[in-house]
Amino acid sequence: MRIALILAVATATAAALPIPGWAQAKAAARKPPPPAAAPKAEEKDAATLEFEKFRAEMEDSNPAELFEAKGEELWKARRGPRNVSLAESCDLGLGVGVVKGAYVQTPRHYPDAGAVMDAERRIVWCMVEKQGFNFDDIAKRPFASDTHTPDITSLVTYVAAQSKNMKLAVPLDDPKVREAYEIGKEIAAYRAGPYDFSCNTCHGADGKRIRMQALPNISTPQGALRGVQGWPGYRMTGGVMLTHQWRMGDCFRQQRFPQPKYASDAVAYLLTYLIGTANGLEYKGPGIKR
């Protein structure tokens, strides 16, 4: 047998691929603009199209898979002071140990916890209540940085991947979940802080942008889906895996608010509103972000 190596491509996730794409897009964007005309609502600019092409290529080899694999190991391993696995103790809503389809059916109300929880909050609850981990230890550094990815991030990525290509189905017919949805909707509308911003200031109307970044209108199912799709996501800037909880916090940061507490009601309710609004639409699993 003669094996010939015909092509070897080293695709650097942040460096090699995007530069040509972006350079082209930037060059295209330098063309003089039509006078005083802002781009139309759903018109996609050159940069967006280039990025979508790049993203499609990256989705085929998303580094999120690395965290998914790590998360699967963590889910099945006996860990914590009580030396039990999440697989044998954690009920995400569909029965103990069931992960298939669980992510798209959160947030939901968990009677054993007496609270509405998104998937990340629920896994944290299981780590604390079933495995015996200390909540404050988890909440101290809940999100990935350039040097550290917490276990909870990998676990969420694994659980989310087990709902790939499934329809979002937040159980809004549960009155407690419906109430969380309505409160989340109020949180999204609440204007305060030095700039009088609410979530809806940026995400309450169609066809708006901040700089080049298109802003999904989270009051519509399609817009809400855009706020759900790709989370948890691998962010190429810095190469970090980040969860939907992190994304909500970063919105509040840009809103000039203080920080929402990790795994809190406020974030769970906001996620109930966001994901619930996208109910019925298809979730594609962990994604890749700029």
Binding site: E179, E186, I187, G193, R253, Q259, D265, A266, Y269
Partner: peptide, 25 residues
Amino acid sequence: RRAVAMAVIKKDFEPRGQAGLDRLA
């Protein structure tokens, strides 16, 4: 619901950096 939402916001945020809880009022 707005009253509940405001109570939730009040209990579930913490100060960070220059962003203090006074900004929630």
